[in-house]
Amino acid sequence: MKKILFVIGSLQAGGAERVATNLCSYWAEHADLDVTLVTSNVADSDFYKLSDKVKRLSIDFSFNNSSILSVVKEQFSRFFKIHSVLKQQAPDIIVLSTTEISIRFLFNLIFSRKKIIVCEHNNYYALSSTFKRLCRTVLYKKASHVFVLTERDRVTYLEKKIVADNKIVVMPNPLGIECESPNIDKQENLLLAVGRLCEQKSFDRLIEAMSDINPNFILKILGDGPDKQALQKKIDDLSLGSRVELVGKVKDISKYYQSATLLLMTSKFEGLPMVINEANNFGVPVISFDCPTGPAEMIENNSNGLLVKNGDIIGFSDTVNNLISKPEALASMRNVSIKMSKEYSISVITSKWLKFFDIEQS
């Protein structure tokens, strides 16, 4: 039985963290794999629950370093903690998920001959630090494969000469949750948005758009983050308190998908947003800004959703209003959405992963 060590910063609420939880759990349940998931955060902070068949470890990095000396000491400590985990676990395959933790582990794996898969969850340009970009350029060459989410990113990594053509792979995320019985007869006038309340997701643009969207519809935004106070102020300033709600973190998102008419996205940039496929799986079409990267790769206009020029808030409102005024077109898109989402089921995506592990799915 092959041993897989899956590394990610934490299992706190987030898309990459949900992917890690679902993949590791599914691999342990349905494939001939001994799976261990390790994070740099303590397990007490976990938002998602792993299968009992997955071993759970924490390196327990310290994030409270007030002086330069303590920061330097912590960096050395982290190096030796990672070394200890790698030595004790002795995995056959190492999966590194998200950029920062990948870079940190790759420093320890420079001379390793093990199979290493780096799994990116955002587009190439989302990493702003010049130093981290340099580390990525140098260290990713050590990986056996680098998984990216879109063809656009694959081309960018090749153009930047990060890795060779035979090492870069487009690997989409699986559905975070799957719906066996979608409710295609939506009765509630509910518009839904999902994501961290931060600058990237740009929910301020969505709130502004709501001012010109059919007043019979309400918007619920699921998620938490640093922009919560500013977004609530914008809601209040636009007198949208009765129509826009910041719901917060939600563990059971399925009940919202089952009731939603549309999923709305106004992000400035993305990787390959899972919420598009998840919403589609529940029969919910998606209207999104055509931001880099992800929406254009996942949305076929008038099939499972609609794309709007990035930043065109008036055009976004008009697109929403036009679609919700055409029940027959909306019903057709619901059915197509469900069919298109099937290619992202966890069983389909797992079969693609297992080819790189050189094993077959049971």
Rank of each mutant, 00 (worst) to 15 (best):
M1T: 08
L5F: 04
Q12F: 00
A13E: 09
C24M: 09
W27V: 04
A43T: 12
L50F: 14
D52T: 09
S62C: 15
I68S: 15
V72L: 15
S84E: 13
V85S: 09
L86I: 13
L96M: 07
I110H: 12
I116H: 01
T130F: 13
T130W: 12
R133S: 13
L149A: 00
R154I: 00
T156C: 06
K160C: 03
N166H: 14
N166L: 03
K167W: 05
K167G: 05
K167C: 07
P172M: 04
P174I: 01
C179F: 14
C179S: 12
N183D: 08
I184H: 06
D185F: 13
G195T: 09
Q200E: 12
F203Q: 03
I207A: 05
A209R: 02
D212F: 11
N214T: 06
F217D: 05
L240S: 09
G241P: 14
S242H: 14
E245W: 08
K249P: 08
K251P: 06
Y256A: 05
Q258D: 14
M265T: 05
M265G: 03
K268G: 04
K268L: 15
P273S: 06
P273W: 01
N280M: 08
F282R: 02
F282G: 00
I287A: 02
D290E: 08
D290P: 05
N301W: 08
L306D: 02
V320D: 01
L323T: 05
S325T: 06
A329E: 10
S332C: 08
M333L: 10
K342N: 14
S345Y: 11
I346L: 15
I349V: 13
W353I: 03
I359G: 01
